[in-house]
Design a protein around this nucleic acid. Sequence first.
DNA 1: TTGTAGGCGTTATCAC
DNA 2: GTGATAACGCCTACAA
Lengths: 319, 319
Amino acid sequence: MSHQTVSRAINDKGEIDPETRRRILEVAQQLRYRPSRFARGLVRPDTTTIGLVIDDILNPFFPELIAGVMSAAEQRSWTVLISTVQNDHGREPELLRSLAGQVDALIGYLYERDAGIAEAIEGLPMVVMGRPAQHPAFGVVDVDVRPGVQAAVDHLLAQGHQRIGMIDCPTACDPLRRQVLLEATAAQGLPIPAEAIVETEQSQAGGEEALARLLKAAPGLTAVLAFNDVVALGAYRTARSLGLTIPGDLALVGFDGLSLGEILDPPLTTINIDKRRMGELAVAQAECLLNGEHPPPATVTTDLLVRASTGSPSAGASG
Amino acid sequence: MSHQTVSRAINDKGEIDPETRRRILEVAQQLRYRPSRFARGLVRPDTTTIGLVIDDILNPFFPELIAGVMSAAEQRSWTVLISTVQNDHGREPELLRSLAGQVDALIGYLYERDAGIAEAIEGLPMVVMGRPAQHPAFGVVDVDVRPGVQAAVDHLLAQGHQRIGMIDCPTACDPLRRQVLLEATAAQGLPIPAEAIVETEQSQAGGEEALARLLKAAPGLTAVLAFNDVVALGAYRTARSLGLTIPGDLALVGFDGLSLGEILDPPLTTINIDKRRMGELAVAQAECLLNGEHPPPATVTTDLLVRASTGSPSAGASG
DNA sequence: TTGTAGGCGTTATCAC
DNA sequence: GTGATAACGCCTACAA
């Protein structure tokens, strides 16, 4: 009874006496024998494992993105290893370094600068999401915010809004939301004054305090674009506590297209990102990188999901 | 220049000329050399990887549970490999089989019976969550629904509710929610008639249609316990479309303690499960199993999270 | 149908 | 400080 015969039985090859095989399998079961994944991988290195690193598994933005990554990976029979730093961004390099030893490629939605990433992973194929490329070797899946923001501005203007504000989150990797909003409104002859944009942290609490501040700094706003849906959720709270009705006294637009927006009252109009597709594209980028190719950056577009938090301003609008 | 010297340089051992090391690292970088994780694992098999299998990454129940698993795994320097069947429960055995070849132990929140699981994984250490043990070798993290349901019943009775109904989901692995509700109400002299319990599928749509059916079958209910928060969300929709106010016309209690309940209007009273702790306990169970021990089943308890969807019934209650 | 030989990439041991 | 050798557990190729 050699290694080889055992191998044949375990792997269900032909060329083996059924009786021998039966006996081997029986013994194997008794011994709770399991083939070593390491030895297997060593000999058949066609097993691809990719790592997915995100900020915070509890952030409702990510589940859909993860689903996209996993389904695309599954189509390729890849394995996905997920990790997070749970909002502790300082740990990103350390996590990347450790993950780099366990996977064939990495996909990340990160805060760390590309230079820092590159240093941590030392040449491992890497795909960064949600921001433009900085490092030439990296794959990219970026979000083109322009169509969505443009649609939102058009939508608000069509409804008669003249004073639009924004709650921005400058710590996020994406500086474009604000910029595109400014351009789009300016192009329509309705430039947004500086005081109509406030900055806050990216959270519900941030949204709450920011809207209060915004309405004080720029009285008369009839519509506000929030940096994302979670921030918009905070804005709802403040609007309610100030006795403002949505959308009559204040129209609100979110960003991300999270399903939580649907259960708000009224449901939140939001600029939608196809998060699942982002995940799928990231896997495709990783595949190119693994094949030694240099894929052009991928982009997902954005569009406006009109729900009920926008509408024409009522006569005597807020202050 | 031998393997060995290279190994010393890469792993930063002592006993090497700094200059030699520098040269090696330089060349390694140029060649984009990366050590094989398989060969490493083969020689130093102290790398533990566990697999986590869940239904559906988009189900808001899971992120917290995942966070618990990951943080507990991280404490032990374990790696977590996540996989889902995205609600296609028939694929569970296949997925388990494939995962079994890549990890040292598995944790799952599954529909498949334990016998089916056991067959798929052939002796791999396994922890099942959210239901009582069926297979003697498995680790278990179960939920004790009794305290939470009891507290909910006490709470409703104290508020003067006399007619309580339930929306149940029999496809779920947990048959106890209904049973405990029946026992708890009966013990207080308020048995629930059969028509005051309807069954539906575990989803928002299920909750919507079920509440409509329930109110027809058992007119006069003033409070309803939903199988979980997502089902309760559906019930909110139906209540609103019927013109019923919550909690005045109808009190609603959910199950799970999801944060989405907080943003409902009114915020949803719910029986809370410590999902993060479930994840942590599951990892602890896996650790015991890996050490060859046979841990006693772990249990998380439940409690009532009182928010605003419960209150005293108004005078002329619903029908 | 079964067994033998060799090598996958890494680390540990021990001799140089 | 460095290099040769063996071993980890598996698979492929070929010989018996």
